[in-house]
Amino acid sequence: MTVFLIAEVKVTDDAWVPEYAAAVHDIAAKHNGRYLSRSGNIETLEGDQTDETLIALIQFPNRDDAMSFVNCEEYAPFGKARQEGSVSHFRLIDDTDIAGAISYLAKPV
């Protein structure tokens, strides 16, 4: 089942950003991940505006691939640098429809 890693990041020290941006998409690709977006163009349409500096959306074929990326040794130093230089939230969602009303999305199991 397809999953999406949503990274919401508020950069507090941007020293880590250039090296992370140059390398991490290749590491994600080794785990079958594909960046769908990595943008700082964040527009709040409803609700309170939050203070993220960037949001990234990465698609993986399944949860195991996403977790292998997040937990791999090659990513570890980049993840540590991001954690030390930002306030981050990594969220994982699947491609199901909790209401079961959208025909092209799977029903939750």
Rank of each mutant, 00 (worst) to 15 (best):
98 I>R: 01
15 A>M: 14
108 P>E: 13
43 E>M: 01
107 K>W: 09
53 T>E: 03
7 A>R: 07
71 N>P: 06
42 I>T: 00
21 A>R: 05
67 M>N: 10
48 D>Q: 15
4 F>L: 12
79 G>Y: 01
14 D>V: 15
4 F>V: 13
60 F>H: 01
16 W>T: 05
21 A>Q: 13
49 Q>E: 08
108 P>N: 13
28 A>R: 01
72 C>A: 01
106 A>E: 14
15 A>V: 15
83 Q>I: 08
93 I>H: 09
64 D>C: 00
41 N>Q: 05
77 P>R: 05
13 D>A: 12
44 T>Y: 05
25 H>R: 03
88 S>L: 10
77 P>S: 04
55 I>Y: 01
58 I>H: 01
107 K>S: 12
17 V>E: 12
76 A>S: 07
64 D>M: 04
57 L>E: 02
27 I>W: 00
52 E>G: 00
56 A>G: 13
99 A>C: 11
48 D>E: 15
28 A>F: 04
28 A>K: 01
47 G>Q: 06
95 D>W: 02
109 V>M: 12
39 S>L: 09
100 G>P: 04
34 R>K: 15
28 A>W: 01
16 W>E: 06
47 G>S: 04
102 I>L: 12
51 D>I: 04
50 T>K: 11
17 V>R: 06
7 A>Y: 12
99 A>R: 07
7 A>D: 15
103 S>L: 10
51 D>Y: 00
49 Q>T: 11
32 N>G: 02
89 H>M: 12
79 G>R: 03
46 E>L: 15
21 A>E: 11
82 R>I: 01
94 D>H: 02
75 Y>G: 01
61 P>R: 10
55 I>K: 02
18 P>C: 13
13 D>S: 09
23 A>D: 14
38 R>H: 04
33 G>S: 13
56 A>V: 07
20 Y>C: 10
88 S>I: 06
79 G>Q: 12
14 D>S: 13
95 D>P: 05
45 L>G: 14
23 A>M: 11
1 M>F: 14
60 F>T: 01
99 A>E: 12
17 V>S: 08
25 H>I: 04
31 H>M: 08
76 A>D: 11
92 L>N: 05
78 F>S: 02
56 A>N: 07
3 V>R: 00
11 V>G: 06
30 K>T: 12
26 D>F: 09
72 C>G: 03
33 G>V: 13
41 N>R: 04
21 A>Y: 00
70 V>W: 05
6 I>M: 12
79 G>F: 10
67 M>C: 08
10 K>V: 14
